[in-house]
Amino acid sequence: MILLTPELRCMLRANAINRRAALRDERLEPDPVPVLKWFNPTGAATWLATELDADGDTLFGLADLGFGCPELGSFSLSEIASVRLPLGLGIERDIAFESVHPISVWAATARRAGSISFAETLLRRAAVSDLPSEDG
């Protein structure tokens, strides 16, 4: 499994560059949508990444190690890639992940829900309930 494709890398870098430009220009920091989701296929750990620093290793996003307290912050691509799980497994990228919600919404929902996984369920349900009905 490729954890970070060139396309995803470019998207993450663009978000980091945009945030730095906003800080430099004294504008409000952007609130990007997560670019990708990684997960532990044998456990509860999940990460949503929005930015990648110029070092190519330091990411920013929402991390949930399965202890009930997801946090916004930095984490390391090389550390995620080095995780070795039972049966020869490693951390996986959710290739079907997509979101319309900015990272602030993910963080608030995950903190209330206690996990990124449950937040994902809640955000999907909310999106479905916001869809217009066939009746109008």
Rank of each mutant, 00 (worst) to 15 (best):
L4R: 08
R9F: 07
M11C: 10
L12C: 08
R13S: 04
A14W: 13
R19F: 02
L23N: 14
L23Y: 14
D25I: 09
D25W: 08
E26P: 06
E26Y: 15
P30R: 00
D31K: 08
P34I: 09
P34W: 11
P34K: 11
L36R: 08
F39W: 11
P41H: 02
T42Q: 14
A45V: 01
W47N: 02
L48P: 11
D53F: 11
D53A: 15
A54K: 09
G56S: 12
F60K: 06
G61Y: 14
A63Q: 03
D64R: 04
D64C: 05
F67Q: 11
P70G: 09
S78C: 08
A81M: 08
A81N: 13
S82W: 00
L85W: 00
L89H: 13
L89N: 10
G90R: 11
E92C: 15
D94A: 05
I95D: 10
E98V: 02
V100W: 02
V100T: 09
V100M: 01
P102A: 13
P102L: 15
S104Q: 14
V105S: 03
A108Q: 13
A113K: 02
A113N: 04
G114A: 12
S117P: 00
S117V: 05
R124T: 11
V128D: 05
S129L: 14
S129P: 00
L131M: 14
P132E: 15
E134N: 10
D135C: 01
G136F: 09
